[in-house]
Every structure is written in C-alpha cells, then in structure tokens.
Amino acid sequence: MTSPNTANILSAVNDIIVGKHQTSRLALTCLLAQGHLLIEDLPGVGKTTLAHTLAKVLGLDFHRLQFTSDMLPADILGVSIFDRDAQKFHFHPGPIFSQLVLADEVNRATPRTQSALLEAMEERQITIEGQTHPLPTPFFVIATQNPSHQIGTFPLPESQLDRFLMRLAMGYPDAESERQLLSGTSRQLLLQQLNAIIDPAALITLQHEVSQVHTSPALVDYVQKILAFSRESGLYVHGLSPRAGLGLIRAAQAWAFIEGRQQTLPEDIQAVLPAVVSHRLQARDGDAQHDFSASLIAQVPIP
C-alpha cells in the first residue's frame, strides 16, 4: 500500500534502525509534513543514528549540533566578522545553515540559546544585524532531549514545544532487534555505506504532493471535534491550539501519502495523533505517565 518512493526510504531506514518501524515511519511523516521533530529519550537508544540515517537516505546535507550549557546563539546562527579588505562586515553562517540539523540534547543549553534555535525553526530564516538570511530548503530540525529529570537540564517550555510537529520516544529495542544490533555490523559503518535514495529536489516534490492529499470537510469536522474535546472535556490543563490542529491535518496527510492514499481518513489522524499532541497536552490530574492520547481517540466519535 505504501507509495514506492517512501517505501524505499523506509526500508533503507529500517535496515539501520532495527525494530523501530513505527518510529521511523512517524519521523518520515514529520519530515514530509515539513514539521520539526523532537525525539525524547535516554542517551544511547539511537536518536542520533535515526537523524543521521534520515539525512543520508534523503540526500540532505547534515549538521550536528551538540548543545551545552555554555553555548551561545552565535554558535548556532553564525557571526558577522569585519572584513578589513572589503571595509564591511561579512556574515559567516553557523551550523544551522544545513538542510537537516540535529540539535542534540537541546535541553542542555540555556533558554536563550534554545530560543535562538526555535525562532530560526519557526521563521526558516535568521536575522542578524538587520540582515536577513534565508535558511536552505528543505530545512528540518531534529532535536533530541534527555528526559528532564536528569541533572543540569533546562527543559523546553511548553510554548516552545508547540514548535515541534511531533515528539517521539525511541524506547528500548525489543529482544530480537537488540540481539541483531549487538551482533551485527557497526551502525556507523552501515551509515557510511548508505546511499541516498532521493535528492532534496525530489523531497520537495514529495512534500508538495503530500500537501495535495485531499482533506474533506468531514475530516476537518473530525479534527475540529478533537480540538473542541481537548478544550471542553476538562481533562487537560490547556486545550489544543489551532496550530496543533493544522499540524494534525498536515501529519495525517503525510501519513496517508505514505500509506499510498490520496485522501486523508480518520485512521490517519488517529495514527499521528499521539505523536502530534502528546507534547502539547498536559493531563489535569498530573499523571504524566498516562497515555491520554488513546483516551482522546476513544472519546471523540468520528462524525
């Protein structure tokens, strides 16, 4: 059922990231929906590998940014240096000027540095000293974050989390995959051997095709009902924003596209819903471990 291009991409990704089909599919969905991705999990479960693999497979130029507490915005965005010969300032672009930026352990940086990144993510351009520099297209940020109860972290505020289309958790691999991982070739080596399946231009075409996937009034109705429920049920501290709703539809379009369909169905919404809303909703009873997206799906009838 999956469309040929995306199927190839996914199988290549799954060769390296074993046993994480759902996560890699959602990550691809996020990229096709032109959204930024936040991966939240413990170190060493393959967050970086996933980002790296995606960059490789999609043929994007890739830059990794390891966030630390002493990092400054200029370390990300770049600096203007006075050029003596030309008698003017010359802009030296920072690592953010890449098609795929991996912002590793984003919660280690100070809020000031974080917000510089997030603003760039939102605007898809940066402005330094009155000069605007557009970021390359396509442009993705995959941020990883350690669980916030670890020491020396500045957890992203909720308002910033909204900028990410999805938040995913990797989780430990299952026993079979883990054995395969331990006994097989090094992932680094496999990564080096990996060839790009499409180029950035093809990716942009794919993104355009995703935005053409039909979204009927009936489906919009369903999404609106979900948003209304999140606000009116009293189960959550804050309801979902219109941006969350837009994100839901965009992500569902991409999911449907990967499934090889030309129309968005309630099932697509349900498939992407946990990843899209989990970081935007906070249960009122404070039970963070509770998977409330499942109950959200169960309680909103499809119109």
Binding site: L265, P266, E267, Q270, I297, A298, V300, P301, I302
Partner: peptide
C-alpha cells in the same frame, strides 16, 4: 462499529 472506529479499521 465503535464511534471512533474509522472505515478501514
């Protein structure tokens, strides 16, 4: 059919 069950499911 459950109220939240989509057509494909």
């Amino acid at each position: 059919r459950y109220a939240h069950e989509g057509p494909i499911d």
